[in-house]
Amino acid sequence: MSGKNNKTPLISVKDLAVHFGLRGGGFGKRPVVRAVEGVNIDIAPGSFFGLVGESGSGKTTLGRALLRAVPITRGELTYDDGEKRYDLATIKKAELKEYRSRAQLIFQDPYAALSPRMTVRDIIAEPLEVMGLTDSREETDERVREIAAKCRLNLEHLRRFPHAFSGGQRQRISIARALVSRPKFVVADESVAALDVSIQADVLNLLKEIQQEMGLTFLFISHDLSVVAHICSQVAVMYLGRLVETAPTRQLFAAPKHPYTKALLSAIPSLDPDDRGKAQKLEGEIPSPTNPPPGCKFQTRCPFAIDICRKEEPKLDTTGNDHNVACHRWQELME
């Protein structure tokens, strides 16, 4: 398995912060949204890294920051695939364009992501043309056909327009477009959330297959823990801009340590009708990132919060075996 510490991580993030200034607030200070705050992660090459959390947790912003699609407020962010190394926090425009061919994004909504006026061939070819990665039309066509076949698209589909396709096929077109520039790192943001279960299973199997075949590294962003459990080797749980727990998938699902992770797992509706009422319920909602609570960000909903949780923000502590948790009381709560 991947994820060994002696390998140079493909993506290395240290104390990363992304803040957005909001308009309004009248005179004086503008309100600031701390969408990502103090995040540290290493993503090993060839891994399928899951990022989970509720809406408003900052997972999409973190994903975009790793693609350098949003400005970075503070911290270090490096990409290193052995051939090329980019310092993404200070990267220049020309270099950023190069980075784009190595790092790509697959969107959530396959209906909104594809232009209705372009043929499938043109949609898939666009990144190659924009980035100038091919020298001739023949070469472009060759690359398009190659990736279309990998994504199990029929070659005669290439001449059609996206409206002729179902949700699952559209998502395969989006995947082909993201992969045509032969990236090393792909961010998949809720890429199966809009699909029916059967199509979802098909797209997940395809992603896994392609990842192994092309040796890709995935950051898989999802709110669906059961999907993440099946496809990712490593998982990070995010809450209000902070990482609260990171661990190898099996470990996280077998022995979650943070009360938030436990609550998330418990909220997944079980397929067993006799499990009714057994779930441990979490009250309230995620607070607004413009006005986060002091101390641990989860304290307003945590059934175990005590004084220290309301005053001091917990650090992400290592508990051994690559398992990290940010909770003042995790040790006590394990007993």
Partner: peptide
């Protein structure tokens, strides 16, 4: 088929089996 396509939490090794076609 619908049930076999679901990612199950009680068996992480179970392959996801899509229903073929649309």
């Amino acid at each position: 088929g619908l049930i076999a396509a679901l990612p199950r939490m009680d068996d992480l090794d179970a392959p996801l089996e899509p229903i073929p076609g649309d």
